[in-house]
Design a protein around this nucleic acid. Structure first.
Lengths: 158, 158
DNA sequence: TCCTTTTGCGCACATTCTATGCACTATTTG
DNA sequence: CAAATAGTGCATAGAATGTGCGCAAAAGGA
């Protein structure tokens, strides 16, 4: 923590906005027992301090035709800054790779992939990921069902 | 797709709002070449149809003291509706488990966990997850670094 | 093809919301 | 303790939203 101090009002605001950022300052104020103008000011401060990084619409995958999600674990042959950069550039170029983490454990990277269907997913794996010169192993788990999906961080304040 | 038809304006609106839902209708209109009022109407329609599920603030983990993220894979001993329900109830009860997916592959479930620190994470694993009667195996990968994090779905529209 | 109906559009504007000055209160600092 | 600073709600100017309206465009039917 870099000296940013958040009181219980801040935390309640953050929690409420993480769940629903379309709340008006008035609605927010009702939830956290502050006036609308104070909510506006605190919100602005939290934005300025980078605690709130931004706001996003949450979209329905099915409506948009995205029928497949997968968690894909990748191992690389060798590591070095340019090698990893090259691999990461590949990931960055493909919109279906939504998240990519370097991890400790069996795998080097864990990817979260969202594709239209199995064909699109398979195409990416076989035509782009596996042929990459530094990729030695790719293991994918298709998401069958989502049991829990909470937005963002475990902030409690509401 | 349930007969919802989205034209290129809709897709552009969705893409823009997924990236930044704080855009005014006026700003949005500039991006997609429609009037502010038309943006307002389309947005309302997309919300009513469930294509837009809601809006969320994106919060900075470090500012809020969350220093550890992990991808945790879990295997269960036996499966059945009541057994899985019991396990899922456990996951639902713990705010640090942000996502939980039933998957095909080596593991039965993949969890995305966000904790304050290693102690909190380890506490959950050792005091809650591993002791669960139906849990046979737990393998965790700590996220060392995020290489890519795109919000939501790979919607392209401008 | 033409005519009718339906849908989508921007304009204008009433209503709602936001952001900020102000005066007061509460908290912190020296 | 007094002075300075920070936080607060009220009031309000300006910005934004949402909706009626008339027109244009698209769809449907003969």
């Amino acid at each position: 923590m870099h000296g940013i101090s958040l009181d219980r009002y801040d935390l309640a605001i953050l929690s409420a906005l993480q769940k629903n950022s379309a709340l008006t300052n008035s609605e927010l104020g009702e939830r956290v027992s502050l006036s609308p103008s104070q909510c506006s000011r605190r919100k602005a401060r939290l934005e300025a301090e980078g605690v709130i990084k931004g706001y996003s619409a949450r979209l329905d995958a099915t409506s948009l035709g995205f029928g497949l999600r997968a968690i894909t674990r990748v191992n690389l042959k060798a590591h070095g800054e340019s090698m990893d950069d090259d691999f990461v550039t590949l990931l960055t170029k493909h919109a279906m790779v939504r998240e990519a983490y370097s991890v400790s454990g069996d795998a080097d990277y864990v990817l979260h992939i969202i594709a239209k269907d199995l064909t699109a997913f398979s195409d990416f794996i076989h035509h782009h990921l596996l042929p990459h010169p530094n990729v030695t192993q790719v293991r994918s788990e298709i998401i069958l069902r989502s049991m829990k999906e909470e937005q963002g961080l475990p902030v409690e304040g509401g």
